[in-house]
Design a protein around this nucleic acid. Structure first.
Length: 467
DNA sequence: AATTCATGGGTAGCACACCA
DNA sequence: TGGTGTGCTACCCATGAATT
């Protein structure tokens, strides 16, 4: 497929115009380029998010969002109100090509004597179609040698790869929902803005689904509203270059803060390890090796026999801390560390998920990856395969499974939300459910050796022989 | 009745190891 | 180096119970 050119000033006007001074058009283009280069990827979800969030920030944010969309070559799906764009069928939502968008923006930027953004039409942005989707629509079944994008019977779009396998594509909605907020690193300001925007526009039913009511939203966003009136008001008077510089600076600051958090986490773990080492060496010096043995940290016991892990009927009857602590035979996290952190007055989830454990998990990619890592760190495969989230069986077909300890599920939810604030409980539970499901499938495909009657009898004979 | 939630099953993409 | 098998996981759909 012929790749559509990347719409930016380099392509349109050449490098020589990049540093031209005094032209508002070039300034605007340069800023679009800045936006493009500032970690905003070309996915439609990012642009959708950008547009959505900037709708709360007045016409300047709107303008920047359009420039960014233009820079990444996104197709804007909009309903023209007082449009200055080429005439469209009245009342119809239309697709706006990046080229047309850019040309129109350029024309308005060069209008003499107008403050930037003032001439921007009142667009009601509906959505941004992905570049690939547009390309697929444009060239469906036409050009030779293009990827085939077949429509499956169920309506799922798919393309065929070189080896004939069909690759499923996420729907646009899915990509926005599941990927949109992961690749984009939110600033606290953005979080507030998004919350404000989302909550103000979401139906009450959806809000309830998120576990929030109007009062909660108001109280939660009171600070943001104050911030908005004070700070954003002053932002309106800033120049575009200043605004972009501020955004980039804030991003750098956030990166730096994240790095510091990682370092501090690592330091905590190091201190803990050192403490344990000192304690052990003291005990060895005192010749009390027997007493020291219980405190020696256990290595992850992935090879632990399944007899330790789960007796569902027993586990399902337990609901309290004791059940949880006994169930730790199913997991591998460190009890002594847990107690230490508890005494140190850390967050509740840190009682379950220690810094050490967190260190082994990938916190930087996606919420799902982090969730999976946490589950794998806390429990072994057999335990995951034999448990469910709630223990409730809604299907007659399904065999009842005991629930994982509720407070541990909560700990996972809070931990994931700490790293991915945009993720709801429901989403993370979905990840957990999927992981449990996958482990169960895996176990069914390849049952544990001890579950195999032959292997079991062999082991039994082996034990008798040894005795 | 519609919606939400939890679950199981099937399918397919991706990464990796292995082999000719 | 390219083809193939395998493991892991994502995605979709169907089902049924609970909830609104």
């Amino acid at each position: 497929m012929k790749e559509r050119p990347f719409i930016c000033h380099r392509h349109l006007h050449g490098a020589e115009t990049r540093n031209a001074v005094g032209s508002s058009r070039n300034t605007a283009l340069c800023e679009a380029d800045c936006v493009r280069e500032s970690k905003i990827d070309r996915s439609d979800s990012s642009i959708y998010w950008l547009l959505e969030s900037t709708q709360q920030k007045g016409i300047q944010g709107h303008w920047l969002a359009l420039l960014a969309a233009c820079a990444v070559g996104a197709w804007i799906h909009f309903v023209p109100a007082q449009s200055c764009f080429p005439p469209l069928n009245p009342g119809e939502a239309s697709l706006l090509q990046p080229q047309v968008l850019l040309d129109t923006l350029n024309a308005h930027c060069t209008s003499p004597g107008t403050a930037w953004g003032q001439t921007l039409p009142d667009l009601s942005l509906v959505s941004v179609l992905s570049q690939k989707k547009k390309e697929r629509e444009c060239c469906h079944g036409s050009a030779r040698g293009h990827d085939r994008h077949d429509k499956e019977p169920d309506g799922i779009s798919a393309r065929k790869t070189a080896n004939g396998r069909k690759m499923r594509r996420k729907t646009i909605a899915k990509r926005i929902l599941y990927n949109g907020y992961e690749g984009y690193e939110e600033t606290p300001e953005d979080t507030g803005a998004r919350a404000n925007h989302v909550f103000s526009q979401e139906p009450a039913k959806r809000r309830k689904w998120r576990g929030l009511n109007g009062e909660d939203i108001l109280s939660c966003n009171a600070d943001y509203i104050k911030f908005k009136t004070k700070v954003l008001g002053s932002l309106q008077s800033r120049s575009r270059a200043e605004l972009i510089a501020m955004v980039l600076s804030m991003q750098r600051e956030m990166d730096s803060l994240r790095e510091q958090i990682r370092s501090l986490t690592a330091c905590g773990k190091l201190a803990q390890t050192l403490e344990e080492l000192i304690e052990r060496s003291d005990r060895w010096l005192c010749g009390s090796h027997e007493a020291a043995t219980p405190s020696i940290p256990r290595e992850p016991e992935r090879s632990r026999p399944p007899s330790h892990i789960s007796h569902p009927t027993v586990l399902s009857g337990r609901t309290d801390e004791r059940a949880s602590s006994e169930q730790q035979g199913c997991g591998q996290y460190e009890v002594t560390q847990t107690m230490q952190t508890q005494r140190n007055g850390t967050l509740p989830e840190q009682k379950v998920i220690t810094a050490d454990l967190l260190e082994r998990c990938n916190t930087g990619t996606t919420a799902q990856k982090l969730t999976n890592d946490l589950l794998r760190s806390l429990y072994d495969r057999d335990c995951l395969a034999s448990h469910s989230i709630s223990g409730i069986v809604n299907s007659k077909r399904g065999t009842p499974k005991p629930a994982l300890p509720a407070h541990e599920i909560q700990a996972i939810l809070r931990t994931v939300q700490r790293f991915f604030p945009g993720k709801t409980d429901s989403e993370i539970k979905g990840y957990i459910r999927q992981k449990l499901q996958n482990e169960a499938k895996r176990l069914r495909k390849r049952p544990h050796p001890a579950d195999d009657p032959l292997v079991g009898s062999f082991k039994e004979a082996e034990t008798t022989f040894e005795h």
